[in-house]
Every structure is written in C-alpha cells, then in structure tokens.
C-alpha cells in the first residue's frame, strides 16, 4: 500500500523553545482510517496543525504523497482536505456556494461537482438548506457543510478534527458511511476524536498521544494487548478501546 502521510521525528510547538509534541513517528497508508486519540492538551490539534502546514516544526519531516511543504506548497496542499473542530465558514456564502468554492479551489471538474454536491446535500439532509446563508445555520449544520466540502475535494488524505461535535445521530451515521466509502476508494483518513466507542468500530489503527508523545499505536487488537500488558496488576481483561485508553493513559490504573 502506498504511504499517503509520512511523519518522521516530528517535534514542534507554539514557540521555538518549548515543544508541545515530541519526536512523533507514524505513517498512514492509502485506504486506512487512523484514529488520533488522547486527552485534552495531549497534542492532537498541534500534530494536525503541523501536518496542515500551519505551524513550522522544530524538527522532523512531514510528507504527503512523498512531497514536503517546502518541495511544492500547492502540490502538498492539494493532497489533503481539512475539517476543523469548530466550523470555519465564510458566513456570507450559502451552503451551495460554499461547496462550489471548495470544489473550485481543489480543481474539481464542474460536471463532477454538480453531481456530487447534489448527492452530498441529499445524504446529509441539507437539500432544503442549500440556499441558506451559512451565518444562519446551527452549529451542527455548519459542521455538515465543512464535511461535505471536504468530501467534495476528494484528495488522498482527509484530516478531520473532532468531526462528531454538534452532529445529530443521522449526520454521524451519514458521515461514517461516507468515510468508509472514502477509505474504500483508496484515500487515507486521519481523524481525531474523543468518541472512542464509535471510532473503535471504524478505524483501522489508532495513535494515542499523551503529553505530546505517542504512548501507544496499532490496531484495536494491538491496543488492547498493550493495555492488557500494562493492566496486569488488576487482572481485569481490557475489551474495548475506551478501557484500553484509560489503562494506557494511567499506566495500569483502569
């Protein structure tokens, strides 16, 4: 499988003297969905910002499809789309115009845009809101617009930060279905989330951060195994991602 995202020895932070993330190493392959997990302040968003190219690393290398930001800015950026934790929309645009803007920015052919935007509006139950200004939408609907925009661009990597915040159950199901399809089409997904019970069924692998360091990574089985190894004092078997998370975080105090 082709490596879509390659992160090597990545350290960085908001000031040159103080690193928030430390020597991160991980790869994401085409067709993989990776769950980035950790408590608040663990370094998930900082990692994502580095991958997006919004922060300059103290050290390390980030490649999307084998290209670094320095090699070619446009090519690097065309390799991903991003759904932020809090919807950041152009509030003066309608839902339809927002989708159009994103499709234009990513060079999606017009015919393809028209067909896909219709499908997405229907799937996310937003057809009636297509002419609504995004300024007048609820937070959940704004998040749907962000997700639809990302799905329209169809790059090789989707970076999604806390996608379920503010979404109703129907929208969560639609999003997960879409993400499975995205994955099957060969794109990779890096998703940060606190909803462990949901993502454990969908992600192929997990990267767990604590205080800016990777404390565990692997498939669900590998995470459970690592958690059980650390949890042997209590002799209780860890069977789910949530339990594994507590066990790995507290070093065996699950």
């Amino acid at each position: 499988m082709k490596t879509v995202l390659h992160v090597e020895q990545l350290s960085g932070g908001y000031s040159p003297n103080r690193a928030i993330i430390h020597e991160l190493n991980f790869d994401i392959k085409a067709g993989e969905m990776i769950g980035l997990i950790g408590v608040n302040g663990a370094g998930k968003s900082t990692t994502i910002k580095h991958v997006l190219g919004l922060m300059t690393p103290h050290q390390g290398r980030i490649e999307i499809n084998g290209i670094t930001l320095k090699d070619n800015v446009e090519q690097y950026r065309s390799g991903y789309t991003y759904v932020p934790e809090t919807p950041i929309l152009f509030e003066e645009m309608t839902v339809e115009e927002h989708l159009r803007l994103t499709a234009m920015a990513y060079g999606v052919p017009q015919g393809q845009f028209e067909v896909q935007s219709e499908q997405l509006l229907e799937r996310f139950h937003m057809t009636k809101k297509r002419k609504a200004l995004t300024a007048h939408l609820s937070k959940g609907m704004k998040q749907k617009v962000m997700i639809m925009s990302a799905l329209l661009a169809k790059p090789s990597l989707f970076i999604i930060d806390e996608p379920f915040l503010g979404l109703d159950p129907l929208a969560i199901r639609s999003l997960l279905q879409e993400l499975v399809e995205v994955k099957q089409s060969g794109s990779a997904i890096l998703m940060s989330s606190h909803i462990l019970a949901t993502i454990e069924h969908y992600c192929d692998r997990f990267i767990m951060l604590d205080q800016g360091k990777i404390v565990a990574q692997g498939t669900l089985q590998e995470m459970l195994q690592q958690a059980n190894e650390r949890n042997n004092q209590t002799r209780l078997a860890v069977t789910g991602l949530e339990e594994a998370f507590y066990a790995l975080l507290n070093g065996g105090d699950a």
């Binding site: 997006l52 919004l54 800015v73 446009e74 090519q75 152009f90 920015a105 060079g107």
Partner: peptide
Amino acid sequence: AIWRDIFPLQ
C-alpha cells in the same frame, strides 16, 4: 482566513 493557507492555491 485559515483557508488561504489550506486551499491548494498560490
């Protein structure tokens, strides 16, 4: 705007 730095455009 953050999108200025995210869209694959110069």
